[in-house]
Structures are given as C-alpha cells and as structure tokens.
Amino acid sequence: MAMTAPDLLSALRTERLLAIVRGSDPGAALDTVLALFHSGVRVVEVSLTTTDALDVIARARARLGETALLGAGTVLTAVQARRSAEAGARFTVTPGLTEAVAESRTLGLPVLAGAVTPTEVIAAVNEGATAVKLFPAALGGAAYLRALRDPFPDVPFVPVGGIDSAAARAYLAAGALAVGVGGPLVGRAAHGEGLDGLAERSEQFRTVALGAR
C-alpha cells in the first residue's frame, strides 16, 4: 500500500515523533521495532546501517501489516531506495542530498532529505523532498532551527541527532514538524541488550511530542 507525501506529513504533524532504530542484532532490531509500535510510537525508521536491515524491515512489515508507518533510513543510493521499497518501507530518510532522494520520488516514496545549511535546504526542496531532515541538528540546536524558519517558513523540518526529551521539547517549540530520536529513545535495545525501559522512554517522548501539538 503506497503512502503519499501528504500522508507522511500528516502523520508527522500528528505524532511529532519519528523513532530511529539502528543496531547490530537483527532479531533484537525487529523486536525493538515491534515494541515501539506496541508502545504507541506510530512512525518508525530502520536505519540501513542496521545489520540485515532490509530483512528487518520485511519481517516487521509482515508482522505489522500494510498500513504501519515503517520506513528506511540512512538511504544513500538509488539501489538502496529500490530495495527498501521492495522490503516494505513506506518512506525513506537520507543523511544528505544523495541520489536516493530522486529515486525515492521516482518510486513514489515520500522522502526526508538530510540538510543542514540554507543552500542544502533549498536543494532538498528543489529535489522534491517531502520534509527536510535537519542533520546533525546538534550543530546549531533549536536556535538554529528557529533562524532557518525565518527564510523557510513553509519548509517542514525534522531535526535529528542527539535529541533527548528536553531538546525535543525545544525543537518542537522552535517550529519543528517532528523530531527524529534514536539512542535517547531506543537505547541499546537493537544491539541485543534488552527492551527494559523502552516502553517508559516511549511514553516519555510521546508525552513531550503530543504535548507540543
């Protein structure tokens, strides 16, 4: 089932949170994805740096059904974009302006394209990015996002990189569409170190995100 760019934007606008799963244990990564959805997180990205990431996406898709908002992250090439779509990813996320941006659009996949400078933001918009992944967001923090929104008031930004709950609150207050959160939310769960605390962290970030609507 295809997801359109407006579908993804609407989901991010509602949920305000994108969970990022990255790890070295495929089975644990799958368990982490399933646990996140079970905990109420509705938009999840599996980074292709995860061991056997495409298989994790395919297995998660089979378990979660066609409508789950599950995407592929750290997509660098056109081939990776195609394989992500074949595995069941409904959107892609790139760390920069890679060839995967144009290929994702060709495939009909919404794409969050990585950018950090004004020039890169303009290029991402011109490439047809659904939203701009502000990465690494920690370089400038919420004040930098606020400054970017002055010349780009209509660009949907999703800051990513080292975002804890306090930073998430600050970015959302500065006008982020949503925040992308990896380690501070997922911890070491996708490396096989257990799911302890994941539900509590999910609730904490969801409370911050939903409170910012």
Rank of each mutant, 00 (worst) to 15 (best):
D154R: 12
A189I: 04
Y171D: 01
A102N: 02
D196G: 15
P110V: 10
A81D: 02
A28T: 03
S104M: 00
A11C: 13
A190Y: 13
A138N: 10
A87Q: 04
N126E: 15
L139E: 00
I122W: 11
T130N: 08
E66L: 15
G182W: 09
R83W: 10
V111M: 06
V44I: 06
V75K: 09
A129L: 09
A189V: 08
I20K: 07
A137N: 01
D154C: 04
L18Q: 13
A78E: 15
L70N: 13
A72V: 08
V116R: 08
I163T: 06
R59H: 03
A28G: 08
L145V: 05
A87N: 07
A58C: 10
T51H: 11
R90Y: 02
E99P: 15
R16S: 05
F205W: 02
G71D: 06
D25N: 13
S10Y: 13
R22V: 11
F205Y: 06
E66Q: 15
Q80I: 08
T4F: 12
L17S: 01
S47C: 15
D154V: 03
V181R: 05
L48W: 15
T32H: 15
T117F: 12
R149P: 09
V101T: 05
S104W: 00
A131V: 11
I20M: 13
G40S: 00
G161V: 02
L172Y: 07
E200Q: 11
D196I: 09
G71A: 05
L30D: 10
